[in-house]
Design a protein around this nucleic acid. Structure first.
Length: 288
DNA sequence: CAAGCGTGGAA
DNA sequence: TTTCCAAGCTT
């Protein structure tokens, strides 16, 4: 039995019941979920996605909202520039695509905040197309099950796509199911640390098992620090703006970080990014 | 192309 | 406590 066939058997019966996977979810709902899931755990996304879709069920609905509302709804998901890009993308979809999320890869990738992964995920999960989807989960599953390595090394974009393309069955529907299944496998079974090989549906066909599960010896991705970085400072500044009912005095922002030079630099960068605005009276607020 | 971009749960 | 990591994108 092939890897794809094993995944095809396993996934429908074992898939987590995530709200964006339900049959009534629109491609717009899928796109929103993919934005939120970029570098962010499923558990944190679920409640935000549900509230978001209730408030903005279509691209045009989101596009009509003030950025401040969008940033508050995004809450503490992290990387708030994603929220602005989703807002922008919604505007493009509303005016250039008749309020319908495009199914075409090139049109999808032209949207702000949509790269190769997100475009392919929308095509596969939103439209049921046969379209190789390569994320960190899939790369790890392929590295192990196909290549017998302990983990995926640095991305090899074209080769990664070819690897996955070679796994997918020919039809749109089964290929889309396998794509979702490969991601699910990487998320819940073939995990980065402590993979659950004992209950893995692909165990019998896994090259890593066959090779005796050798350790990964390649280069490790350096883990990003956080404490003391601009990212932390920006997060604190934005948290003040999100939590305030209206504009805040500079003093309220000064209080969140003692290093004035770093604080000023971060506040400037938030203004540049469109995540904050300064009013004529000198106070600061989320953008209108 | 390497670096920068948030946040918080789990090991 | 510290470290690692979670469905990437942009410049």
């Amino acid at each position: 039995m092939s890897l794809a066939a094993l995944v095809l058997d396993w996934f429908p019966a074992n898939a987590r019941d995530l709200p964006w996977r339900r049959s009534e979810t629109t491609p717009w709902g899928v796109l929103v979920s993919e934005f939120m899931l970029q570098q962010t755990p499923v558990a944190r996304v679920e409640p935000v996605w549900t509230a978001w879709m209730a408030q903005w069920p279509t691209p045009s609905a989101l596009a009509a909202a003030p950025r401040a509302d969008v940033l508050r709804a995004w809450g503490k998901l992290g990387y708030p520039r994603r929220a602005l890009r989703l807002h922008e993308a919604a505007g493009v979809i509303a005016v250039k695509h008749g309020d319908v999320v495009p199914a075409d890869l090139d049109a999808l990738e032209a949207l702000p905040g949509v790269g190769s992964y997100t475009a392919r995920a929308v095509a596969a999960f939103g439209y049921g197309r046969r379209c190789p989807v390569v994320d960190t989960n899939v790369r790890r599953v392929v590295a192990r099950a196909v290549h017998g390595h302990g983990d995926a090394g640095p991305a090899r974009t074209a080769a990664d796509l070819a690897d996955v393309d070679a796994l997918l069955p020919p039809g749109d529907r089964p290929a889309a199911v396998v794509s979702a299944g490969l991601m699910e496998l990487g998320a819940v079974i073939c995990t980065a640390r402590a993979p659950r090989c004992g209950i893995c549906p692909v165990h019998a066909e896994c090259a890593w098992q066959a090779a005796g599960r050798p350790d990964y010896t390649g280069p490790r991705k350096p883990v990003q620090g956080f404490a003391g970085t601009d990212r932390q400072v920006r997060g604190r500044l934005l948290d003040v703006l999100r939590g305030a009912d209206g504009p805040v005095e500079r003093a309220a922002l000064d209080a969140v970080w003692s290093d004035g030079a770093q604080r000023d630099r971060c506040l400037d960068s938030l203004l540049v990014d469109g995540l904050a605005e300064q009013l004529d009276d000198g106070r600061f607020a989320l953008p209108a």
